[in-house]
Simulated assay, not measured.
Amino acid sequence: MKVFVFLVLAIASASAGLLSQTAPVHPRDRTIVPSINGRITNGNNAVANQFPYQVGLSFTGSEGSWWCGGSIIDNSWVLTAAHCTSGASSVTIYYGATVRTSPQFTHTVSSKDFIQHVNYISLTVRNDISLIKTPAVTFSASINKIALPAIASSYSTYVGQTAVASGWGLTSDEATAVARDLQFTDLTVIENSVCQKAFSSLIVTSRVICVATPKGTSTCQGDSGGPLALDGTLIGITSFGSPDGCEVGEPAAFTRVTSYLEWIKSNSGVSD
């Protein structure tokens, strides 16, 4: 998981009324600790084959290297966040890992096989979604795809339902040791109106899904691009959180997958 670098929101005064004092920050970019890795805070250790759709993504680019998560949606496609692919020249994909450094195998893919949303805007975290075309993989108990939501569920808010987020990295805002094991935690989806109080309606649009983070349990540094799953279906892509830290109790935000089903299908051919 990639370390967070704070987003500086310099919006014109005409838009100032739409912004809160809390600027969103990507899990990839948090600079609270001097490490390029992070994980779900106060989560649980996953067991082997629990999340076969989870992949680790080790990106390299002109600004260095960083870690993100991703989800297998087809044997030749991984779905992740645009802020993970942004600025990268290549990525090494870690398949079938529970111990982060011990995947079943890896594939390295160049940026020519990235499909980043053309209208991704980092300033307001719009369209934070990317596809990665990969060599075909054979599915197994440890490596498998996750289902996309059905078109019929596009209007579901999921409010009040409990979904599971997963990823690797640090255990807290202060931790510096890289996690050995894949982590996961259950998180409850909240109303966007509640999330807007933390990040504003300019940031939290209908294409964002937010969760509560009680007792310091949240996505954190390096969880960027990873999955938020509900009953075996991918409903969110880890996107941003509070710049004050992962354990402060502020909502965590995800790209809402149901808002991008047509985009995913038109660019990859993958649908529910």
Rank of each mutant, 00 (worst) to 15 (best):
T124D: 01
H117S: 08
I151E: 06
S140A: 13
L123N: 08
V137D: 02
P135D: 07
A147R: 15
S153A: 09
T134V: 12
L148G: 03
R126Y: 15
Y155N: 15
R126T: 12
T134Y: 05
P149S: 03
V118M: 06
I121S: 11
V159M: 07
P135R: 07
V137H: 05
Y158H: 14
L148E: 01
L123H: 01
P135G: 02
A150I: 03
A152E: 04
F139R: 06
N127D: 13
S122C: 04
S122L: 11
I115Q: 02
I146K: 09
A147F: 12
I132W: 02
V159F: 05
K133F: 01
S156Y: 13
K145L: 12
L148K: 02
L123V: 10
L131Q: 10
S122H: 14
T138A: 09
I132S: 01
L148V: 12
A141S: 13
S130V: 09
S122W: 14
S140Y: 14
P149H: 03
I129V: 13
Q161H: 11
T124I: 15
S130Y: 08
A141K: 14
A147G: 04
T157L: 05
Y158V: 14
K145N: 10
A141V: 01
I129A: 00
Y158E: 09
S142L: 00
I129Y: 06
I129L: 01
S156G: 05
G160D: 06
I132R: 00
A152G: 07
I121N: 12
A152W: 00
S122F: 14
Q161A: 09
T162M: 01
A136H: 09
S142T: 13
H117C: 07
Y155L: 12
I151K: 05
T138P: 08
Y120K: 06
K133C: 00
T157G: 04
T157K: 07
S156E: 15
V137C: 03
T124R: 04
Y158N: 14
F139L: 05
P149F: 00
S154H: 05
Q116D: 02
A150F: 03
A136N: 14
T157H: 03
I151V: 14
Q161V: 10
A163Q: 15
S153L: 05
I129W: 03
R126C: 01
T162H: 00
A141E: 08
I143R: 04
I151A: 12
G160T: 09
S153I: 02
L148N: 03
P149I: 04
S153P: 05
Y155P: 00
G160L: 04
V125Y: 06
I146W: 06
A150H: 07
A141I: 04
A163D: 10
F139I: 02
S154Q: 11
S122V: 11
A150L: 13
V137P: 13
N144W: 12
L131H: 09
V137I: 15
I146N: 07
I121P: 00
S153F: 02
V159Y: 09
P149E: 02
I146R: 09
S156H: 12
T138I: 13
L131Y: 08
P149C: 07
T124H: 02
V137S: 04
A163M: 12
